[in-house]
Amino acid sequence: MKKPVLFLLAAVFLLPLVVRPAIASEIWIFAIFGLGANLLMGYTGLLSFGQSTFFGSAAYVAGWLMKVQGVNAFLALAAGIGVGAASAAVVGYLCVQRSGLYFIMLTFALNQLFYFTAYQWTSITGGEDGMPGVPRPEFFGVDFKDPVIYYALVSGLFLLSLYLMKRIVESPLGKILQAIRENEVRAEAVGYAVPRFKLLAFVIGGAFSGLAGVLYAMLFGIVPLESISFVFSGNVIFATLIGGSGSLYGPVIGSFVFIWLSESMSTVWARWPLLLGVAFVLVVMFLRGGLVEAWTRFWTWRSSKLKT
């Protein structure tokens, strides 16, 4: 096994010793969400500002299924993935023809549309109050109510997602998506049906987002309204950018840094968003490519030092 894998496994095991299982779980859930966003943003070059549409829809549907219909965890997860993919298919179908700022705005507007629908549909979603009382149903006799066991489930699914994503981006499909990112016209000219591939990226990304959404709802026992808000969409983009978009581990590192930082800063200073803003600006100014890039740069710098 090579370094990154060892590193990740160490992180998965050590994280709950450093932070509480709830935060640790949230970090990996957010990382799954980030993986999906990164496929669109980093690999396909589609800056979707509406990822929480898929995250939130999946959370609501799966939460409702578990709460009202009493389905088990496995079915709920499957349903969430399905809803995430389906909603992404709809949004993607409407958006893939657009590009640039229009694309961003359209995904944003559709996100708002879903948000206000959830806001108004209080009988199901609870509106502003969120949908509370989402259970963590047991599955094959395993009781997920214990935070540590739930963490094991989340981190296991995270590793699985990461592995799947790795396979996807290294597959021919991944290469095509990257070709679209690099030069859409050329990809089209070579004979790829660009919109169809973009749509596919949407659906896959949506499935990952959906998985993350269900895990999130089960983690906190509630589907809060903000889980479908554009703030959430923004957060996942920013986390990915901080980590480094377009690299497999970028969103993972980004979610870790983003959640951990905002959690720890918020207990230190009430005006912590100011620091977050400064961090954003600094990343843009000096660290395009995010932390992954910083890491690579650091190693190149060190090896060049060693040589001389």
Binding site: A22, I222, P224
Partner: peptide, 14 residues
């Protein structure tokens, strides 16, 4: 926010 509040409450309890 409901999400943040429930999360931080749980953390404080646990």
């Amino acid at each position: 926010q409901a999400g943040t509040s429930t999360r931080r409450t749980e953390e404080a309890v646990d």
